[in-house]
Design a protein around this nucleic acid. Sequence first.
DNA 1: CCGGAAGTTGACGTGCGCGTCAATCCCCTA
DNA 2: TAGGGGATTGACGCGCACGTCAACTTCCGG
Lengths: 133, 133
Amino acid sequence: MTEDTMTIGQMCRCFGVTPRALRFYEQKELLSPIREGQNRYYTPRDRARLKLILRGKRFGFSLAEIRELLELYRLGDGQVTQLSATLQSAERHRADLIAKRDELATAIGELEAQMDVIRQMLAERSQSRRAAE
Amino acid sequence: MTEDTMTIGQMCRCFGVTPRALRFYEQKELLSPIREGQNRYYTPRDRARLKLILRGKRFGFSLAEIRELLELYRLGDGQVTQLSATLQSAERHRADLIAKRDELATAIGELEAQMDVIRQMLAERSQSRRAAE
DNA sequence: CCGGAAGTTGACGTGCGCGTCAATCCCCTA
DNA sequence: TAGGGGATTGACGCGCACGTCAACTTCCGG
């Protein structure tokens, strides 16, 4: 721990993932921990990226898509690599996320409606019970 | 088309899926089209279910999870199969969906913040250009 | 009667996201 | 000096969600 870096084991305990997964993400260029000899040391930046990775997975994005998303946060690398292209990419991702959020809202609404139906059935059932007695 | 049912080919064109996928969903008990001889005929109910399936997939749910969700909409089958249990299951799913929606909102906010950073960099760049001329 | 389009059931293949070994290495403590 | 804990790199395996054949049957127009 040269600084505020973490070993792979610490990362695993911290985020609830396996070493295998972290190495896999590294191979897919989603993470790039410091390699001191053979060992890996994860910086705060790696941790932030891992958070984004895990969140992306919860939303059903593939690792390839998550990789793209991570690129958007990787500014400041020498050449100002087509900032406007990056911005356009970000715009697309934003639209995608917003569509998903709205669709989720719809799904929640439908589920709640269905829950009301169930509650209604429960109420009727207890009423017919009382009537039978 | 005895009624307002559809063949597998019509379903595929309508929803942009393959026959293989539809048969796979059937095998996993997510769909149960009418079987007339060997052929399949999909009812409006099947179409509604397929919509839910595809939406669930977009949210990153597994087919097993989607199956559970579909169960919640399957009421009215003879015995009032533990309505309260169904309601509890629905409650869990609702909480899950809401958590996801909120997380998505956060992600959108972060992405928009990053977009502002990029716009800022673009603005500074065009300013230094003008200054250099 | 024949061809083509659409449907069917297996059965094997494929890409993704890791799990699960094995064999090895390094460091620390007892 | 020996062992234990944690790390490493292959390499193979696995579950999911289908894709992709092959080998039919059924129907319908010409």
